[in-house]
Write a protein that binds this DNA or RNA. Structure first.
Lengths: 198, 198
DNA sequence: AGAAAGATTAGATATCTATCTAATTAGATG
DNA sequence: CATCTAATTAGATAGATATCTAATCTTTCT
């Protein structure tokens, strides 16, 4: 139901306060007036009133007016929706809205690839090196078979050290070799940063 | 499981922050490194690290170290306990720990009853008047029948205006009258502050 | 009508906390 | 062994917010 990030955030902020949790607890037992609640929590009435207004705006409590005292009570089931939106692990994963998934890769590439398309340096960290290698692999067509000389030529369009880079691509299982012939492997075959198969 | 107030409060405080919610969301999709997370949220690494430490201390994320990068991932099911402790309305009501239920009544009585046991004034508000009347009703034995003169005498030990107080006790259905004879009614018969039967 | 009670609104303040920079630790690389 | 990278820890700061006092509003009682 209410599982967009701003809404979820409002609920959590409302519940992340000891006074408000105690208020909820007290009005869950029975109807209570503002001054009674303020007295029980050792707060001034305006403070209690302020908290109750927030809880009301979220539908967590209901008010009944009688004379000039207002009786607050907990709204049963109002937290069930929140609980449901938090129960499933998938719901949490679905919260990211506007973050482009490739942002990190772009960031790394931007730091290592020059405007002319050549590699500034080979990233020292495995994590970044893997991203750069995956980018370089786009120069190779899937299914086609390449002799070593052609592999080196394609790599050298990006960086002079084709020996190192070719070895790395093999190491990550992005490229396979047999009898001096190379071919590109599918992404599902690649090794991850720590050398494990994906 | 974790439904005492301090624990619940820690969880809600941890989740009541946009950065931490987004972090959870990102690591729920896949394993991610600190610098990747910092970059995706436009935060500095120490900030991300700080948030992740808090989430880890609550068991919401797990870490795997590889080289000197640490891969964080969401701990599936870690929120289920929280959700369960929030789902049931009774759990909320059970949070009040150390608040004595009679505190409010004691407070009212303390404000209107003098040390010698007499009534300073009759509370103007129905809410407080009802509490004082209930207190005065203790002077009457259950089951016993009282002529009007005796009722007045018992009330006057507390306050001179026995006529008003007697009428009020009748009004709240604490006392019943027939043919000039009065008797005390059970608490279940009393009217509440707004005149409704309990 | 005037006074009082209960509650809310307005405005001020002090505490908490999310974030940053700088310094430190631990691991990998050459 | 020196260097570099990723992450954390330490310390400082700016922004958020829980709470208070004072003022206002509404309903009830005399």
């Amino acid at each position: 139901m209410a599982s967009d990030l701003p809404t979820l955030l409002r609920f959590f902020k409302a519940l992340a306060d000891e006074s408000r949790l105690r208020l909820l607890s007290l009005v869950a037992q029975r109807e209570r007036s503002v001054q009674e609640l303020a007295m029980l929590l050792a707060l001034k009435e305006p403070t209690a009133s302020h908290h109750l207004a927030m809880l009301k705006s979220l539908g967590l409590v209901r008010v009944r007016q009688d004379g000039n005292t207002r009786w607050y009570r907990f709204e049963p089931g109002s937290l069930a929706g929140l609980a449901r939106s938090v129960l499933g692990d998938e719901q949490i994963a679905a919260l990211v809205g506007d973050v482009p998934p490739a942002a990190w890769d772009d960031h790394v590439l931007g730091a290592f690839v020059l405007p002319d398309g050549t590699l500034k340096t080979i990233p020292a960290s495995r994590k970044k090196r893997r991203i750069v290698l995956a980018w370089m692999l786009r120069d190779f067509e899937a299914g086609r078979r390449y002799p070593e000389a052609e592999v080196n030529a394609l790599i050298q369009r990006r960086h002079w050290d084709s020996a190192t880079l070719r070895r790395e691509m093999i190491g990550y299982h992005m490229l396979a070799r047999e009898h001096g012939i190379y071919w590109r492997l599918d992404e599902s075959e690649w090794r991850d940063e720590s050398g494990q198969a994906a």
